[in-house]
């Protein structure tokens, strides 16, 4: 395994930000912990580095100005569970990751089904050879309906 990947599996500090690696199936549980501590979800984003996803959910403490980022490393075909049940405003970030990077995210409260930005190219921020990997079928079944406007646009 590359040295860099091993390094990314350890808790580390970048500036005032603490990056805490978590497994994909621990994300919801960790998000509940953050919520209990009264932290605000500050941002969520995704990168494609070394042929895998680096997913970051960052939480801010507005009292101490501390910043904690939960970091998940995931394969292209992996599916993660949405935290929008815990932080409703995570839905926009998750829709963005889903549309730009083709990341499979289940149970997003307000799921735009890849129509948030209306981009015709599938997963435009991924390398071309990664774009056509099959999406998660279970997500398609369990996801709630898209808002009316997106449906019209899709037609």
């Amino acid at each position: 395994m590359p040295e860099e990947t091993n390094e990314k599996k350890a808790v580390r500090q970048t500036g005032s930000n603490t990056i805490v690696p978590v497994k994909a199936d621990e994300l919801v549980e960790k998000a509940v912990e953050m919520k209990k501590k009264g932290l605000r979800l500050s941002q969520a984003c995704c990168s494609w580095v070394n042929n895998q996803y680096e997913i970051s959910y960052s939480f801010a403490d507005d009292q101490t100005l501390d910043y904690i980022t939960l970091r998940i490393l995931a394969e292209r075909t992996a599916t993660i569970s949405s935290i929008s049940e815990i932080y409703p405003y995570a839905a926009f970030y998750e829709n963005e990751m889903e549309e730009l990077f083709g990341l499979n995210i289940r149970y997003i409260d307000l799921d735009y089904h890849n129509r948030l930005y209306r981009i015709k190219t599938k997963a435009p921020f991924l390398p071309e050879d990664q774009r056509e990997v099959a999406t998660d079928e279970t997500k398609k079944i369990s996801a709630p309906d898209a808002p009316e406007t997106q449906k019209e646009d899709a037609n």
Partner: peptide, 26 residues
């Protein structure tokens, strides 16, 4: 690195990631 600054509309977050090349990866 995550940089956080106060824009007129509020907290803006800038995340950059590079691996020793002239171009950022993200």
């Amino acid at each position: 690195y995550f940089a956080r600054i106060e824009q007129p509309r509020g907290e803006a977050i800038f995340y950059s990631e590079g691996h020793g090349k002239p171009n950022l990866d993200r």
